[in-house]
């Protein structure tokens, strides 16, 4: 491979154009990102307390509660690690990883909850529990709790992804959906599988779609402005 050098005056033009447009540094952005994310995570916590907190979820068998919480916590931690973490790569994870997080998180949670309902002695409670309970409240709570941290993260990462902004957004949406799902699992007393599928897992698909739509708008690197070149 032979490299060809550009003309000598290009360097002067590039340096002059860069000096005319201030650009924030990594350290400054990292500090504001931490502040935005803490604020974003505080909102679901406040929502949880305002809607009754742990008291609202009383009445579930302890084993079911512990097992379903474990599923949600593991799913949320793994999804957040995979979607939010970037490793040493400035462009983040590869597309197959992100697609895996976006599609795999809701699917695996549903599979795990289905396996749980089959394995636990309280299977009847899981399958036939209060199926009449509306899933809409859990669905809207998951969505509301996930949306703010998701938007905060997209805001922090705006203009950062030249490769796969929509997929990146979808993975973040699923991960923050799972994060909100932990809180909703703590809050919700209903353990029927149908309710979990509709009220807890389906919103993850919605947050993933919302993340993809918002990511496609916020994450791509915008073309340089006319005046800057």
């Amino acid at each position: 491979m032979r490299a060809v050098s550009p003309s000598a005056d290009l360097k002067a033009r590039v340096l002059a154009a860069a000096s005319r447009t201030p650009s924030p540094t990594y350290d400054r952005t990292r500090r504001s990102a931490q502040a935005v994310l803490i604020a974003g995570a505080a909102v679901p916590a406040a929502l949880f307390v305002a809607t009754g907190g742990l008291d609202h979820g009383e009445g579930r068998p302890r084993g079911v509660f512990a097992a379903s919480m474990s599923v949600w916590i593991v799913a949320a931690v793994v999804a957040l690690w995979a979607a939010v973490g970037r490793g040493r790569a400035p462009m983040g994870r590869a597309t197959p990883w992100l697609v895996g997080v976006a599609a795999g998180t809701p699917s695996l949670i549903l599979l795990a909850m289905g396996a749980l309902s089959a394995a636990l002695p309280t299977r009847d409670a899981l399958l036939l529990g209060s199926v009449h309970r509306l899933a809409a409240s859990c669905m809207s709570m998951t969505f509301a709790a996930a949306l703010l941290p998701l938007l905060a993260m997209l805001f922090v990462r705006r203009g950062s992804d030249p490769v796969h902004p929509a997929t990146h957004g979808a993975a973040l949406g699923a991960a923050f959906g799972a994060f909100a799902g932990v809180m909703v699992c703590l809050w919700c007393p209903d353990v029927s599988l149908r309710h979990i599928a509709l009220g807890h897992v389906a919103p993850l698909v919605l947050t993933s779609l919302a993340g993809a739509a918002a990511g496609a708008r916020l994450l791509p690197m915008a073309p340089p402005r006319r005046g800057s070149t």
Partner: peptide, 15 residues
């Protein structure tokens, strides 16, 4: 030139 200006604008995202 555009590539360098984008790198300049996005330096906050570079780890």
């Amino acid at each position: 030139q555009q590539t360098f200006l984008k790198m300049h604008a996005a330096r906050r995202h570079f780890i």
